[in-house]
Amino acid sequence: MAAAFLVNTVAPYLRCDGPEDVRKAMMSAASDLCYLTGYMAVDEGFHGLAQQYYLKALQLAGASEDHLTYCTTLRGMSVQATDRGHGQYAARLADAAAAASPQAGPRMRAFLAGQQAHASAQIGDRNNANRFLREAEIAMEKAESRTKTFGSYNPSSLTYHIGQVRYELGDLSGSISALAESDKLRLSTFRRTRIRYLSLLAERQLEIGHPEEACVTWENILDIYPHVASGQCDEKIADMGSRIKPYVKNRNARELYERAHLVAPKLIA
């Protein structure tokens, strides 16, 4: 639907004549929609398509001098690269996003620095990871002392990045603690995000040797899953089945596996 709207409605308007300020406003709105469409493509696992939309978003944001969407898109591309394990590209994109927003307010600075920290940690750059994380924490403290903006980068998001940095730098138990705290701070309405990040928590609980704790976390995920439609969440549920299957002799693991099969029979073998 988003792609059809871009092709059938937005593109014809962008080809129309009009005052410069109106054309820039149109390009700015179109760039934001391209970014959103790219983000949706990432969620469905179409990563090459997502990059095409992200690049178009950058082009339109640059032409319209929309610095916010330009920086947000670069950061989104960095997040995509990080999630795909391309740390070097992720770090370059995160740094480019920060460099393109020199006048960023504290919440935006935290938004950018948190991703810089995660990307730096993924390539083993401990010094920069910790430096950017501290910058994000200081910026968040400033932002939280001001008026809060619903849905923007918040303490839950920052704590998630702390968990990711700790994990990349080898602190598994610290990562688990941070991810658990992040979920406590996150609004329950963010179901898709909760599934993705709780899945990371469960995977790391299993990795550290606590399968029963992981089962409790995955049970929470199964409570949320029927209320979302997301390719990434589907992948997480399928991955959960693969990870828990070797533990089915454990009663909790077996009950979880059986419930998962009922909730998502197409995803659980």
Rank of each mutant, 00 (worst) to 15 (best):
R134I: 13
R134H: 12
R134S: 14
E135I: 09
E137M: 15
I138P: 06
I138R: 08
M140D: 07
E141V: 15
K142G: 09
K142M: 11
A143S: 12
A143P: 02
A143G: 01
E144I: 07
E144W: 00
E144L: 09
S145Y: 05
S145C: 07
S145T: 03
S145I: 08
T147N: 00
K148T: 02
T149K: 06
T149I: 15
T149S: 05
F150M: 00
G151W: 05
G151P: 00
Y153T: 05
P155G: 05
S156C: 07
S156T: 00
S157L: 13
S157W: 07
S157D: 15
S157V: 13
S157A: 14
L158E: 05
L158N: 00
L158R: 11
L158I: 10
Y160I: 14
H161L: 12
H161C: 15
I162C: 04
G163V: 10
Q164D: 15
Q164N: 13
V165S: 11
V165R: 11
V165F: 11
Y167S: 09
E168G: 03
E168M: 10
G170M: 06
D171N: 14
G174N: 01
G174Q: 07
G174S: 11
G174W: 09
S175G: 06
I176M: 06
I176G: 08
I176Y: 04
S177T: 13
A178K: 08
L179E: 02
A180G: 01
E181H: 03
E181R: 09
E181A: 08
E181K: 04
E181L: 05
E181I: 06
E181S: 07
S182E: 10
K184Q: 08
L185S: 06
L185N: 00
R186L: 15
R186E: 11
R186P: 13
L187W: 09
T189M: 08
T189N: 02
F190M: 10
F190A: 10
F190V: 12
R191Q: 14
R191L: 12
R192T: 12
R192G: 11
T193P: 00
T193W: 04
R194V: 15
R194D: 03
R194S: 11
I195K: 12
I195F: 14
I195H: 07
R196E: 03
Y197Q: 14
L198G: 00
S199F: 08
L200W: 08
A202I: 02
A202N: 01
E203C: 00
E203S: 05
E203F: 12
E203I: 09
R204A: 03
L206P: 06
E207W: 00
E207R: 01
E207L: 05
E207G: 00
I208P: 01
I208V: 06
G209H: 04
H210F: 11
P211I: 15
P211Y: 13
P211L: 12
P211S: 13
E213R: 10
A214C: 01
A214W: 13
C215A: 06
C215E: 09
C215W: 05
T217W: 14
W218V: 14
E219W: 04
E219C: 10
E219T: 15
N220C: 12
L222R: 13
D223E: 13
D223V: 02
I224S: 10
